[in-house]
């Protein structure tokens, strides 16, 4: 049954591609005409302004942002946010450098899928770093890696991202200029722009439908 299904697939590939070529009147293996260069517009802004702009846009979406000068100022903010809560933190070195993984409420160091998943299911807060942040849209960019799994920013109802200011980019176009082909680095790149939301019932906005309903950014 499965074998025959596979056989059918090989066939369908030829059928579909054949139909496409017939419809377009193209022979197999023809190269396309050349495309113009991708249109990427990166504003020339004072980089110092990005952080402020990011903060404004992030808060407009319903997030809350903090700016600190030194890594050691991060832990006190987190202790405050984590009062009475249980958190899972990713293995990003920057979190350890900020002293977050040492906090009593925080579990970290997961390398096993099942264990990580079990911890995320019950945790109140997920703490990650961010690979990039986009000032124009208040977006966090997360690349999945051994240090940064997918579920920590997804399963717990609260997400806190802690990252250095050096990760700040102007906009989506600059991200695509820096990472022209994200697939070369990761199986999953996610842009997070605000807390999870829906307006599916009567167009009324509700936060936290499947992903975190609360998000925080701490920029060092």
């Amino acid at each position: 049954m499965v074998e025959s299904a596979r056989g059918a697939q090989v066939n369908s590939r030829e059928v579909v591609l054949g139909n496409v070529r017939k419809a377009l009147d193209r022979a197999a293996g023809l190269l396309p005409t050349t495309l113009t260069a991708p249109r990427l517009k990166i504003p020339i802004l004072d980089r110092g302004r990005y952080t402020t702009l990011f903060g404004q846009n992030f808060e407009k979406l319903g997030g809350k942002s903090f700016f600190v000068r030194e890594p050691r100022e991060v832990a006190p903010i987190l202790s405050e946010l984590l009062q009475g809560k249980r958190a899972v933190a990713s293995n990003a070195p920057f979190l350890a450098a900020c002293g977050i993984t040492g906090l009593p409420q925080v579990q970290s160091g997961f390398t096993d899928r099942e264990a990580l998943r079990a911890a995320c299911v019950t945790a109140d807060v997920g703490i990650t770093s961010a690979d990039y942040a986009l000032a124009e849209t208040g977006t966090l960019v997360m690349l999945s890696s051994p240090e940064e799994p997918r579920l920590i920013s997804l399963l717990p109802p609260v997400h806190i991202a802690v990252f250095p200011q050096s990760r700040m980019l102007a906009n989506l176009d600059e991200l695509l200029a820096v990472l022209p082909n994200p697939a070369e680095q990761t199986s999953s790149m996610v842009l997070i722009t605000g807390p999870s939301r829906t307006a599916d019932i009567e167009q009324i906005l509700v936060r936290g439908v499947h992903g975190p309903g609360e998000i925080y950014a701490v920029i060092v």
Partner: peptide, 8 residues
């Protein structure tokens, strides 16, 4: 400007 999640 961007939806909440864009997955690549």
């Amino acid at each position: 400007p961007l939806t909440v999640y864009t997955s690549f």
